[in-house]
Design a protein around this nucleic acid. Structure first.
Lengths: 376, 376
DNA sequence: TGGATCTTTGAATCATTCC
DNA sequence: AGGAATGATTCAAAGATCC
C-alpha cells in the first residue's frame, strides 16, 4: 500500500465547519482503497466516483483520414481479467459504503465496459439505487469503422446507503434548473473541451476529464452547502473545483502526481459563489405546522364560514372545532376533501377556498397570513 | 417443467427457408427456460429478450390529483430476492447463448432494477457487449412525489456471442434512418400507446408492451431478411409482428395464455412490407429545448449575474440553480417575470436582458449561441 | 367539421411527522 | 414501533368532449 500524503490546497472554503478529523478540502495522494481505509466510518455526505472503465482496447485506432486516435491506454485502466476488475470494484465500493453517512448518497459514472459490474456490486452491497442517469454527449466521438452505433452516452448510478435511508434531493432546484419541468434521467452536456480542458504542452492532462457542468448538476441535486463530498478517483479535480464553487467541502484521492499537481492548481483558481448566489429554491422546511383549528381560534375564519373547492362543486361549513361539514360528511379539511373527491388523500389547504371580494382564494393564503403575523 | 405447446399462427412468412427442425413463426407456450432447452444449439440469428424487471414496488401510488397509478403487479414480476432473480437471469441467458449462432447477437432490455444484473451476467457468460442503447421516452410517467429524477429511459444491451465473433450490423440502413448521420446509442421513441396499444375491455392486455418502432430499429440494424429471431419473453408479440413486417422469421416463447391469444391475433393481422416500403419513416427532429439552467451550468451566465427587463424597471440576480431573485421574489425566469409584471405568464427568454458592451440584449441570444455551439 | 379544452394514462423500487 | 394525521406532488400524448 502506498504512503498517503496529505496535500493541502490554498482554498479557504466558505462553508461551515465539519468533523475535525476529516482532511477537508485536501487531496490524499496514494492508493484509493488504502486512503479510504484511513477515513472514519459514516463521515461523508456524498461520494462521486469515476473509476477506471476497464476499456480493454485492442490495437491502435486510426481515423478515416489516417490520424491516430488518442485513446485511454494508461496503465491504471488495465486489469488482468473481468474477475479482477470485479474484485477491485467490490473492494472500493465496500469502503465507500463504510465511509458514507446513513443519509448520504453515492454517484458512480461508467460506460458499458464496467457499469454493469459496478451496478451489480452496488446492489449486492446493500446500496439502494435511486436513479440511473444518462449523460448524453452533445458531441461524442464517431464510430470511425462503422461497426457499431456511435457510443454517445455514459451512465451514472445514483444510490442511497440502503432501502429505507433518507437522502438529500433538491427537487425544487432541479425543477428550476430545468425551466419548471421535472428534471429527467437523461442529461445532455457537451464533452469537456475548450478552455475547460486541462492541457500541458498541448496534450490533455487527463484522458477522461469530466465536464464541470455534470458535477455541478450532481452536487446541486444531492448535497447541501457545507456538505462533504469525497471523490476516490480524483484525477484532475473536477469534483473539487465544482464543490469549492458551490460551497461544499471536498476530499480527493489520487495516486498520479501529475494529476494531483494539475488538480491543486485548478482548484486554487476556482472562485466560490457568494452565499446569496447559493440560495436555491429549496422548499422552506422550517415553517412550523399550523393546524386549521388555529385559524378558527384566532379569528381568521369564523365558525359557520363557507368554504368551497375551486370549481364550487362542493360547499362545506366550518365548525367551531376546526372541522368541516358537508351534508352528512364531516372531518378535517384534508379528510373531507379526500372523501368528497373519492380520493385516497387530499391537501385541504389548497383544495378548499373561501370567497374574498367575490373571488375564491385557497385557505392556504390564510395560513400564510397567520404565519407572517405570528412569526418573529 | 411445463408441457410445451406449439401454437402455429396463420402467418405465411414471405422469407426464405431456414433449418427445418426449428418451430418457425410459432409461439411455444410454456416456461421460457424449458422451451429454450427444446431448441437446437446455434440455431437462431438474433434474440430479443424483455425479461421481468423485478420492480419490487412498495405500496400503492397515487397521482397528485388522487387518481391511482396502474402499476406492474403481475405475478411474473415477483422474485423472492435479488439472488433468486440473479440465478434466473443467468439460467435463461445461458440457454440463450447455447441457442444463438456464432455470428448472432442478443438484445436485452431493462431498467435500473435489473439491467446491471443482466449486463453482469452477459459478460460473465462470455457474450461480448457491442453497445448499450438508451431508449429515451418522449412521454415518460413523471415522478409524482418529487423524490427522484423522472425515470425517463430504459436501457438495452446489444452483445455478440463472443469477443472475436462476427455479427450483422447494417450500418448503412442505420445511417439512412438517421438522416445521414451515424446512428447514436441514444434513441428517442414515445411509449407504446394509442392505436398500437393492445386493449381488452378497455384495459391494457400487457402492462409493458413495447413500441413497434423500437423493435423495428433493432431488427433492421442487426438482422437480415430471412433471419430467425427468438423472443423468449414474447408477451403480446411485438417482436413477432415486426419480424413479420420486415420479412424475418420469428419464434416466441410465452407462458400466459392471454398474451399468446393476443399475440396470435396481432401477428396474423400484420402485413409484410415490400422492399420499397422498408424505406425510413423518421420524423425530422425539432430544435431541442434549452433550459435556462443549462446556460448557468455551462458557464454562459454566471451565478450572480444581473438581468433586467428592457426598460430596466426590474433588476434580478441569477442563482446557482438557474433561478432568478429580485428582493424577496424568486423563481424561474418565466415565473419571476410574470410575478413582477403581475401577469399570468411571461416568456422569460425575451423579457430578461443582460448587458453586453453597455447594451441590453435578451437572454434568448445566449440560448441561440448555446444551441449553435452544441448542435452538430 | 374544426378548434379548443378536458380527461386519461404510462415498467414506479415515489413522504414525513406526531402520538 | 406502529398507526394516524398532515401535507406535498405530474408531463406528454392521445382520445374524448364541447362549442
Amino acid at each position: 500500500m502506498g504512503v498517503l500524503e496529505k496535500v493541502r490546497t490554498r482554498s479557504r472554503a466558505a462553508a461551515p465547519a465539519a468533523p475535525a478529523e476529516l482532511p477537508l478540502d485536501q487531496i490524499l495522494m496514494g492508493d484509493c482503497i488504502a486512503a479510504m481505509r484511513s477515513l472514519p466510518a459514516k463521515s461523508v455526505d456524498c461520494i462521486f466516483a469515476d473509476p477506471p472503465y476497464n476499456l480493454q482496447l485492442g490495437g491502435d485506432l486510426n481515423r478515416p483520414d489516417g490520424s491516430h486516435v488518442d485513446a485511454v491506454t494508461d496503465h491504471w485502466d488495465k486489469f488482468d481479467s473481468l474477475a479482477v476488475y470485479d474484485r477491485f470494484t467490490r473492494e472500493w465500493l465496500a469502503e465507500a459504503r463504510r465511509i458514507l453517512k446513513d443519509d448520504g448518497t453515492i454517484w458512480v459514472i461508467g460506460s458499458y465496459h464496467n457499469i454493469f459490474k459496478v451496478g451489480s456490486a452496488i446492489q449486492d452491497l446493500g446500496f439502494w439505487i435511486l436513479n440511473d442517469i444518462i449523460w448524453r454527449k452533445a458531441n461524442p466521438m464517431p464510430n470511425f469503422k462503422g461497426t457499431r452505433f456511435t457510443n454517445a452516452h455514459e451512465t451514472l448510478i445514483w444510490a442511497s446507503s440502503g432501502e429505507k435511508a433518507k437522502y438529500t434531493f433538491n427537487y425544487r432546484s432541479m425543477k428550476t434548473l430545468n425551466d419548471e419541468l421535472q428534471m429527467r434521467s437523461d442529461w445532455e452536456f457537451p464533452i469537456c473541451g475548450g478552455q475547460e480542458r486541462l492541457k500541458k504542452d498541448g496534450h490533455k492532462v487527463h484522458p477522461t476529464q469530466k465536464p464541470e457542468a455534470l458535477l455541478y448538476r450532481i452536487l446541486l441535486a444531492s448535497t447541501k452547502p457545507g456538505d462533504v463530498v469525497l471523490d476516490p478517483f480524483f484525477g484532475t479535480g473536477t469534483t473539487g473545483a465544482v464543490a469549492k464553487r458551490l460551497g461544499r467541502h471536498w476530499i480527493g484521492i489520487e495516486r498520479e502526481l501529475d494529476y494531483v499537481d494539475a488538480a491543486m492548481e485548478r482548484i486554487a483558481a476556482a472562485l466560490p459563489l457568494d452565499e446569496s448566489q447559493l440560495k436555491t429554491m429549496q422548499a422552506p422546511k422550517a415553517a412550523p405546522r399550523v393546524a386549521f383549528g388555529q385559524l378558527v381560534e384566532n379569528g381568521y375564519l369564523m365558525p359557520g364560514a363557507v368554504l368551497t373547492d375551486a370549481k364550487r362543486k362542493h360547499v362545506a361549513v366550518v365548525g367551531a372545532d376546526g372541522s368541516l361539514r358537508c351534508g352528512d360528511n364531516a372531518g378535517s379539511i384534508h379528510k373531507l376533501g379526500a372523501a368528497l373527491q373519492g380520493a385516497p388523500s387530499c391537501n385541504g389547504w389548497t383544495y378548499w377556498h373561501h370567497e374574498v371580494d367575490g373571488k375564491l382564494k385557497p385557505i392556504d393564503t390564510l395560513r400564510q397570513t397567520y404565519l407572517l403575523a405570528t412569526q418573529p
